[in-house]
């Protein structure tokens, strides 16, 4: 499994890395904003992307729109502190596969990742 973690906080990237590590072995790449993620996603070809919404330079929502507009169908879980319905609906319309609101427990994120991976395997 190849996972791209996109977050401007090194702490959050480390937390995500730990959650993924407990699910199973994975090849992990990190990006610190949407712009960085676009170039890394292109080279890395991930099976799953964990995407923060609020980041400098290019935010997660802009990345999502650009990434999907290029025909990429890799599952994306958006992880954000924005819990308002408008933000969630906006992200789903733009092509996010799941949405996890911070603060979350590691178990919750783990469940969501597993669910996405199971769906992928079943497809």
């Amino acid at each position: 499994m190849k996972v791209l973690i996109v977050d401007d906080s090194k702490t959050m990237r480390s937390i995500h890395r730990s959650v993924i590590g407990k699910i199973g072995s994975a090849d992990i790449e990190e990006a610190c904003d949407g712009q960085d993620a676009l170039s890394k996603a292109s080279a890395f070809q991930p099976d799953l992307i964990l995407l923060d919404r609020n980041m400098p330079n290019m935010d997660g929502y802009t990345f999502l729109k650009i990434y999907r507009s290029k025909g990429n169908s890799t599952p994306i879980i958006m992880i954000t502190s924005e819990a308002c319905k408008t933000s969630i609906v906006e992200a789903i319309k733009a092509g996010v596969n799941d949405y996890v609101v911070k603060p979350f427990s590691p178990e919750k994120l783990s469940e969501r990742i597993k669910r996405i991976l199971e769906k992928q395997e079943a497809a």
Partner: peptide, 29 residues
């Protein structure tokens, strides 16, 4: 505890990132 690894104030960049992120998560939430 938050970051899952020992971070002291001398690990300046990681320490500042973690404190800032915690404040950010609380306020945004």
């Amino acid at each position: 505890t938050f970051a899952g690894s020992t971070i002291g104030i001398s690990d300046r960049e990681d320490f500042v990132d973690a404190v800032g992120e915690l404040a950010n998560i609380i306020m945004r939430s």
